[in-house]
Design a protein around this nucleic acid. Structure first.
Lengths: 366, 366
DNA sequence: GTTAGCACTCCCAGGGCAGGAGTGCTAACC
DNA sequence: GGTTAGCACTCCTGCCCTGGGAGTGCTAAC
């Protein structure tokens, strides 16, 4: 025995190899109970308390044996020797896998969400904010939403509106909804009629064009300076610039709501952690990547703790889903919280909200 | 002596009554030094350290005497008997009064801010966000900005843009800049020409109208149903609704930036406090009130701790200023931080940014 | 395979203690 | 009179120590 170091750990690992794949039913049930208990209390879960609370028909000692197995499988952890068990990221992962398919939201909650959603006229901007805040209040966690963003943008309408003697706003309406506004400098005074004519001209030339097509127009204008009013050229330039900017940004903006909720969680009692997470979420590049990766997916995705790319995010989980129309225009909605999160509820809520948003997009943009 | 209780405190109070009004120069200097030290270190300030650091030509004992006076005048406080001194809200107030007039920002900083400000095309929305983030980075505190809001709104332009077969966006451009977008339901399919005609009609009828005037138009339309297309009426209804909403909200939206900065302050190490402050700042009603109160003022206002109306805000200070054109369209910019704040810098920065914004408003809306 | 028993580990709260920073008073000084 | 040195006193802070308790992990019996 001394010559062949052979610990109990190795015994267990060996046993696991013989019977790989999913956990035994009972082990899975224990894991599940521990996770649910830990999510509820934020305290490490001990064997005795677990048996009592969940009226298990086995003794604490047996539970402890199973816990030890789950620990060697890296599904549970141990803050210190004499503390209860805490789920690891992998533990959560297994738990999530085991439930995510059949989940749907309780009818009462569906109703509440639908009700909140119905409240607002769909003034565009409002919409994403609403999605985020609905999600935040339903899950009592932080929620994020990005506006739906067309993969390639196409102009729907251009208008020029005077705002003062020497300035005017150019309005650019793109297909699938977004409206951009930018100011023009007027080198001289224009009459209303002149402005209208220019606006009309620009609109006629650019309508339904994509970014490269706009650039082509701009090139021909530049080849023949003086052929049109300077304001005309300026307008086309601005439009081109706006469209390039829009194309470049993979996520235009991120609305987050309910950060207050998440502040209540003991994990974020010290604001240091919160700050790190904030930082990442403000970062459009990060969410841009996310959108790209989610674009193909058809359901809710869950990123648990260390599964997130950013190290800063290694103690939070993301439950996110794309919405919109694949390959044409998509956005993202989701929930952010500590890894100790009520996954089933979060998943089903995100799924439901994403469904609502899809309905809406279908209805509006068909 | 026993029959006439006559403490030293009373002695001092009596002396203060004889010589009321502003502090002696030396006392003021000490107060100032204490505040600056405390702002820098976040630690209660003791007499010895103060004398050393500020090379005062008086002894610690004298400083202690003065400190005691300042304490009876409620300008300094005492976390506990054997701790150093901490400024009270009134102390900060006196300090701020003594400096706020002549402050202007260091040229280098002016340059940096101007530079940041110059970066962006003034796409409307961006602007306030930019102001907030510039302010946040310049003061390393949290900053807020509200969009400029016309006191009474007047329509500048209305347009209708098809977004899908059965839906269209109505664009409402108001005087002084803001653009609203809302969706219309099309009961039947409309040709482009039809839509254009209706848009044109609505625009002609409503252009330059104020809210009550729009309502008047709506009333006449309702008296004669069928006189115009249903979509025409729907559009006018939506416009009326939007304008009422716009009039009702005294603050449309609040952009806050740099909350991350403020999280670093030891005052907000526990997120509980932060949460309370957040809560208030999200509240448009609160900032609405603020806008109203600031509307008349011509300079930066400072609200220190308990001077704020909300109790939740009693440990933060606000340095805010209105911008825009008095009685016509105003917004608010400012800085939020712990009462232990670098007031001179905050005040001069807010003043400078507000100046820039005024310039811009003047330039754009004249 | 399950369970009772038990030793062991380690956190946590509380008490006591020493060190130190800072005050406030008094008495002397200029 | 204001200013200063001296000194006692207060009270926080960090530290160690301790006892209690929760929970584990092992062993041996069922």
């Amino acid at each position: 025995m001394a010559s062949q170091p052979h610990t109990h750990q190795e015994d267990r690992l060996a046993r696991r190899k013989v019977r790989p794949g999913p956990l035994e039913d009972r082990s899975a049930a224990i894991l599940r109970a521990i996770i649910e208990e830990y999510v509820a209390t934020a305290q490490p879960v001990g064997s005795v308390a677990l048996v009592e609370k969940y009226a298990l028909s086995i003794s604490p000692a047996t539970v402890r044996n199973i816990m030890a197995e789950l620990e060697t499988a890296d599904l549970l952890g141990h803050p210190h020797t004499s503390a209860g068990r805490v789920p690891t990221d992998r533990g959560y992962r297994m738990y999530v896998e085991s439930i995510s398919d059949q989940l749907s939201l309780a009818p009462v909650e569906q109703l509440m969400i639908r009700h909140q959603f119905g409240q607002v006229e769909f003034a565009n901007e409002q919409w994403f904010r609403l999605a985020a805040s609905t999600l935040a209040s339903a899950t009592r966690a932080a929620a994020i939403a990005t506006p739906i963003k067309p993969q390639a943008c196409r102009i729907r309408r251009i208008d020029i509106v005077p705002t003062a003697e020497r300035s005017a706003s150019l309005l650019l309406v793109m297909a699938d909804g977004p409206v951009k506004q930018v100011l023009l400098n007027l080198e001289r005074e224009y009459t209303q009629a002149e402005l209208d004519e220019i606006a009309h001209g620009v609109d006629r030339v650019l309508r339904a064009k994509t970014t490269p097509e706009v650039d082509a127009v701009l090139d021909t204008l530049r080849e023949r300076p003086g052929s049109v009013d300077a304001l005309f050229t300026q307008a086309v330039e601005r439009v081109s610039r706006l469209m390039h900017e829009f194309d470049a940004a993979s996520v235009e903006e991120v609305f987050s709501e309910g950060l207050l909720n998440v502040m209540r969680e003991p994990e974020f009692e010290r604001s240091e952690r919160l700050r790190r997470v904030f930082n990442v979420l403000q970062d459009r590049a990060y969410l841009g990547d996310l959108v790209q990766r989610l674009a193909g997916s058809d359901d809710v995705s869950v990123f648990i703790g260390s599964e997130n790319e950013h190290e800063e995010m290694s103690d939070v989980s993301l439950v996110v889903a794309p919405y919109g129309r694949r390959d044409r225009a998509i956005g993202v909605v989701g929930v952010v919280g500590p890894t100790r999160m009520a996954y089933p509820h979060a998943i089903s809520t995100v799924r439901y909200v994403r469904g609502l948003m899809n309905e809406l997009v279908d209805h509006l943009y068909t």
